[in-house]
């Protein structure tokens, strides 16, 4: 199975991603093997508010990257319904231009598909595509919610997509994604108000903090999937950022940060799942906290102690 993944077999890759999502104990070794073989791809995070044009952009970006002969994996995340747990995964619909190309692999993922372990599962899906040899792996997710922000921050290059219109900008600031951008895209630049949005972002870049202690100048790239404009520029900016990370050695620190985050996220995931199966002890502890016998912190510590023993 793992051999087939490494050889780029489509069904083997797809099944391995399903295993990453399900996180069953019997698949641990296979996923560990996947991880050993990952680490070569340039991972790019695409984020922005719903409807900002991320999927459409991923579709045309994919085509542009393919022109250079490189292969592309895409993990596209959409929200699950909080009511039914089901989801409509609509990103693929915007990427039909990539259909029929063996050098492209698109996988849709629901936020709840991983039972709360979204960051863990989606980054393992990225590992699978990476190990399978895709040169660039794009990960699309809305920039709302901590998990989603963590996921894009686990990319080597973070692209924040803003569509023209002030509402989007305000939302992006609230979600705290503007400052994590290595590259800003103003999508739908065919629209009249795009220039104003680009100016707004350029203005804001001078003010807030960024994570760029080094001398990377965050570019603002207008793109239009409709008119086919700015896509080459964006690929050039992504390549330049990757080169910058290597040239300055900043890639090592970023890798460390990403791995650190993943270890913590996975720990959270393990703990959450185990406690789901240990509801009795949790119920007893809740009773005691309810009676104000012990504070929540002590209950948490006791839960962790029993967790360590098990």
């Amino acid at each position: 199975m793992i051999k087939d993944v490494l050889a780029g077999d489509v069904r083997a890759i797809a099944k391995m991603i399903s295993r990453a999502e399900a996180a069953k104990p019997e698949d641990r070794d296979a996923l560990a093997e996947v991880f050993r073989h990952a680490g070569k791809a340039h991972v790019i995070g695409l984020t922005g508010v719903p409807g900002s044009g991320k999927s459409t952009l991923a579709g045309v970006l994919g085509l542009e990257i393919r022109k250079s002969g490189r292969t592309v994996g895409i993990v596209a995340i959409d929200p699950s319904s909080p009511f039914s747990g089901g989801a409509i995964l609509g990103d693929r619909l915007r990427m039909t231009g990539l259909a029929g190309d063996d050098g492209v692999f698109i996988r849709s993922m629901a936020t709840r598909g991983a039972m709360g372990g979204l960051a863990r599962a989606s980054l393992e899906a990225v590992d699978v595509l990476d190990a399978a040899g895709f040169d660039i792996v794009l990960i699309e997710t809305v920039g709302v919610g901590q998990d989603e922000v963590d996921i894009v921050q686990a990319a080597h290059t973070v692209v924040v997509v803003s569509a023209p219109g002030l509402g989007d900008e305000i939302q992006a600031i609230k979600a705290g994604v503007l400052e994590i951008a290595d590259i800003h895209v103003v999508s739908k630049s065919d629209r009249a108000d795009a220039a104003a949005t680009a100016a707004d972002i350029r203005g804001m870049l001078g003010l807030g903090p960024t994570r760029h202690e080094d001398d990377w100048q965050v570019p603002v790239v207008p793109t239009s999937a409709e008119a086919g404009e700015g896509i080459e520029d964006l690929v050039a900016a992504m390549d330049a950022h990757r080169k910058h990370l290597s040239d300055t050695g900043a890639i090592e620190q970023r890798r460390r940060d990403i791995i650190g985050m993943r270890v913590l996220k996975t720990a959270e995931d393990i703990i959450r799942k185990d406690f789901k199966g240990n509801r009795e002890q949790l119920a007893v502890l809740i009773d005691r906290v309810m009676a104000r016998e012990i504070p929540p912190r002590e209950a948490a510590e006791r839960l962790l102690e029993s967790f360590k023993k098990s």
């Binding site: 489509v10 069904r11 890759i13 797809a14 099944k15 991603i17 399903s18 699950s80 039914s84 747990g85 089901g86 989801a87 409509i88 995964l89 609509g90 693929r92 619909l93 039909t96 259909a99 029929g100 692999f105 698109i106 996988r107 849709s108 629901a110 598909g113």
Partner: peptide, 25 residues
């Protein structure tokens, strides 16, 4: 009903459907 639905839209060919179904498992 709790299903995850990959909405793929209009496909050009049967082969594109096969590819999408495989990738999406």
């Amino acid at each position: 009903l709790g299903v995850d639905v990959v909405y793929g839209g209009l496909q050009d060919s049967l082969q594109d459907i096969v590819q999408a179904a495989m990738q999406e498992d």
